[in-house]
């Protein structure tokens, strides 16, 4: 078997989010729920303020009626190269792999929730309760993805199961991975193509090209987390007349 140290990866996975295209439709949110066996956010969970959403769409108001805008931004784990969630985990349950991803090893996690405090993007979710589904609904669960028990932390995995499958299938069929062969559940769903997934090491990939866009920025730049999720700024064609808050 190849050990992690020997497996020098040729991939650096990442995502580019074109905020200008996002309509807030929630298709990505739902696709991620279904793909990743995310515990159901029941009404009680909502009221307890423990809602799960590996990818969420934040909504912000700008201005006041009638010069008001509601703007949306999808936020998921930024897969920081310099992830503040990683060094604080006492048991290495969350760590950085060789492919640019922040990964979460569920069975190592003891549930200190320290990593969640450490994550400035608030994208980590703790299983306060054992997740339950009525028996018949369990038929839907994705067998590629572990069902997390209570007491552990979870978050966007970049749909690692799809990445692994894509890489292995390409190896099995003896061809090179092409840009677009691997899509995450959310990027596949997103009808406006606001979300694009790919390999930054492939310089012709869509993400590599989008990463050079003038509108590129990263969230909480000042924290130097060096995310692998890049954003393209929202364009305001009305001349920026509508200002921010404060």
């Amino acid at each position: 078997m190849v050990t992690a140290a020997e497996r020098v990866s040729s991939h650096k996975w990442g995502m580019v989010v074109d905020v200008d295209r996002c309509t807030g439709c929630q298709a990505c949110v739902m696709a991620c729920q279904a793909e990743n066996n995310i515990p159901l956010s029941t009404e009680d969970i909502y009221r307890q303020k423990r809602t799960f959403a590996w990818i969420r769409v934040e909504r912000y108001w700008y201005g006041d009626f009638p010069d008001v805008k509601a703007r949306f931004i999808p936020i998921m784990c930024q897969h920081c190269e310099n992830a503040p969630c990683e060094p604080v985990c006492p048991v290495f349950a969350t760590y950085h792999n060789t492919e640019g991803m922040n990964v979460q090893i569920y069975n190592r996690c003891v549930g200190t929730r320290y990593c969640a405090n450490g994550c400035p993007y608030n994208v980590r979710f703790f299983n306060y309760w054992e997740p339950v589904w009525p028996v018949s609904l369990r038929n839907q669960l994705n067998p590629d993805v572990t069902v997390r028990s209570r007491g552990i932390m979870e978050k966007c995995s970049f749909c690692v199961q799809r990445i692994r499958r894509g890489v292995r299938e390409a190896a099995r069929d003896g061809h090179d991975l092409q840009d677009g062969d691997i899509g995450t559940a959310c990027t596949d769903a997103c009808p406006t193509n606001a979300l694009v997934f790919g390999d930054y090491n492939d310089e012709n990939s869509r993400v590599s090209i989008m990463a050079k866009d003038d509108r590129k920025y990263t969230l909480l730049d000042a924290l130097n987390t060096d995310p692998n999720v890049l954003y393209l700024a929202q364009v305001d064609a009305t001349g920026g007349a509508i200002g921010g808050h404060d």
């Binding site: 604080v88 985990c89 006492p90 048991v91 290495f92 996690c109 003891v110 549930g111 929730r113």
Partner: peptide, 25 residues
């Protein structure tokens, strides 16, 4: 979250998993 597993965390013993507690934490 899983207090029955805290030995992973509080003891410098690797439980045959090849990983010691994270000294940076």
């Amino acid at each position: 979250g899983r207090p029955w597993r805290i030995f992973y965390w509080i003891t410098p013993y690797d439980f045959a998993r090849g990983i010691f507690p994270n000294a940076r934490s």
